[in-house]
Design a protein around this nucleic acid. Sequence first.
DNA 1: TATGTACTATACCGTAAAGTACAGAATTGC
DNA 2: GCAATTCTGTACTTTACGGTATAGTACATA
Lengths: 215, 215
Amino acid sequence: MVQKNLASIPPVRGRPRSFNTDDVLARVRDTFWRYGYAGTSMDQLSAATGLHKPSLYGAFGDKKRLYLAALDNYLAQVRADFAEALAVPTLAESLYAVTERSIEKYTGESEGGTGCFMMNTAMPEAAEDPEISRVVRESMDGLDRALFRRFQKAIDAGELPPSADPQALAMILVANNYELSAKARAGYSRAELRLLADKALDLVGRIAGAPAGNP
Amino acid sequence: MVQKNLASIPPVRGRPRSFNTDDVLARVRDTFWRYGYAGTSMDQLSAATGLHKPSLYGAFGDKKRLYLAALDNYLAQVRADFAEALAVPTLAESLYAVTERSIEKYTGESEGGTGCFMMNTAMPEAAEDPEISRVVRESMDGLDRALFRRFQKAIDAGELPPSADPQALAMILVANNYELSAKARAGYSRAELRLLADKALDLVGRIAGAPAGNP
DNA sequence: TATGTACTATACCGTAAAGTACAGAATTGC
DNA sequence: GCAATTCTGTACTTTACGGTATAGTACATA
């Protein structure tokens, strides 16, 4: 994401916007989060943001561009959250923070709907929309890489033996993350999700010292 | 599911149906699979099945009942597939069969769309529809239990030591299954999914002999 | 063959969807 | 102050949606 969103660059001349783009995108995101992409109407988005439709269209384009802007916004925040959690020096604390943030996000404790926003809104569209599926793939690859690097860092720091298998370890947490999202959406409780995440962390601990198996 | 679907009980009198219910539900399922629940219109379903809308409404009720019938149909088939794969006597072969069937299904090789039908169509609706979210939860619990029982069986059969942790082992495959579904929908290739599944199976092998960790 | 019954086909209904035209309002540069 | 520019608000257009009325049709029982 090198280029900034056009909609967030305030125009120099003319009547200024009466709204803050990020606030609007947060409302838009929450509405899509609850009802899905196809299940959300522009009128709902208009009501949720307090903006009239021409303002939404003027600022973001059509429904899909508005959705993609909200998705970008969400993914940027998720990346920042992950980066912060992964920056914790101790591996165990770092991984716990990762799972805890996911659980908090997916249970909708702070804001938004349940489960992962991308999983529950982009996936149904991904089959027929290459633009959306590309964003999804890149986001997934990013998650894989981020966790892989964290384990590599732990090996470099001597927290794990050089023989450890960072790819397998990363996969445990990635797969667990998908399960957390799905089960949160289905209505599982925070406590149940916490147990699942702890099981995954326990697994990581059990095989952290083991070398990679035969391919 | 004790009670049979009403739509599958042929009436005794009057003009008989010109269509086979299961065939129709398969077409309905495939259409929802591609476009999502909210993204699919009754006209699309009518075109995909070759039935006119009044026939669909007459046989299944409204859109949601039609969807739920297709979902039940799908889940029954998935359960049967899983049961068959889990019935393979050797644990390793059994687990490989489980992953292979998922991959085949999720890549849309034989029929339907990509990813898990339930994941990609029911999840967006699950947040606002308790009836759908209940079905999803029950299906998830069923998957957890089926895999747990398979590992328990392997312990009973002496394939795994009594100290093995069937819950953790089951979780590896369940979480992997969710990841396979998500990545298939995002467009990952069969080969990439196979590698992921093999990593999970490898993990199972690595910790199969280990006892459960501290809770 | 007569009759009841359920299915099929066409056409339609009311509503809600995405998107827009246009007039007025707010701000900047001149 | 005045023109240029951009946003806001109301009302609208067009299309597609879920769902149905109705007329006709095919079959089972009697």
